[in-house]
């Protein structure tokens, strides 16, 4: 073992300093490599999702609004991804519940409507940047999870829709007291283009999380996919 000379120590020290000094340039250069760039920016989005989950408070309520602040119903946008009306047969409709629940099976709209009705004027914020205040009514997701005997320490709800849309929702957000299985808008039964017979209304999430035309709901730790838009690059958490 030979002790490094002072000169060698100095050279080593300089190399590290130079690397540090050049790191902004190295970072900028690395971003021109597509695979590095993609990992880097989806990673940064993931850091945001991780922080979102860390700061989420289940009992912190989204602001609610007065009747005069409501966006008129005919100005409430429709942001369907494919069709406005996937032709759901209301007579035959039931929500199929599976996964980590004590009572799996089909649940009719009447069973969901038998749960306490909660009506609220909350803001619906789209990832595109627009926002509207709507009046939504339905059963709390937490009440429904109680009805089906869900294991609330499971990580996710995974839902599928009549129009092939699909979504995942983290359990803490599902249990937030304003998260609804929504069957009413503006005190009227949900219309087909707004997601009849049943949709999510989630005031703590961006609009793309509030899936319409629900057909199945699975309580699970493992989701097959993150969600229709999330699989294309949107935030999986989608929390606001």
């Amino acid at each position: 073992m030979v002790e490094p000379t002072n000169n060698e120590k100095l050279a080593h020290h300089l190399a590290r300093r130079d690397l540090l000094r050049l790191s902004p340039l190295l970072l900028a250069g690395a971003l021109f490599i597509p695979s590095v760039r993609s990992k880097f920016i989806t990673g940064g989005l993931g850091v945001g999702d991780w922080l979102s989950e860390a700061i989420f408070r289940r009992n912190h309520l989204a602001p609610t609004f007065s009747t005069s602040e409501l966006t008129p119903f005919d100005q409430f946008p429709l942001n369907t991804y494919d069709v406005n009306d996937p032709d759901v047969d209301f007579d035959d409709w039931a929500l199929t519940v599976s996964g980590d629940v004590a009572r799996p099976g089909k649940y009719s709209l009447a069973q969901i409507k038998a749960l306490p009705l909660q009506r609220q004027n909350t803001k619906h914020i789209c990832v595109e940047g627009w926002d509207v205040v709507g009046r939504f009514g339905g059963a709390r997701v937490s009440d429904f999870l109680n009805l089906v005997g869900a294991n609330t320490s499971a990580k996710f709800l995974y839902v599928e829709c009549a129009d092939d849309y699909y979504e995942s929702l983290d359990m803490p957000s599902a249990l937030q007291p304003q998260s609804l299985l929504c069957y009413e808008m503006y005190d009227q039964p949900l219309t087909r283009e707004h997601g009849a017979p049943l949709r999510f209304s989630l005031p703590t999430k961006l609009g793309y999380k509030s899936a319409k035309y629900l057909t199945t709901l699975r309580v699970t730790d493992v989701i097959p996919q993150k969600g229709y838009w999330e699989d294309q690059g949107y935030s999986q958490d989608g929390g606001i």
Binding site: G44, L45, G233, S235
Partner: peptide, 15 residues
């Protein structure tokens, strides 16, 4: 390129 890609850039570089 599109909204989703821009959000990835924006959130990452915001940190």
């Amino acid at each position: 390129g599109w909204l989703g890609g821009a959000l990835q850039w924006h959130i990452t570089f915001a940190w």
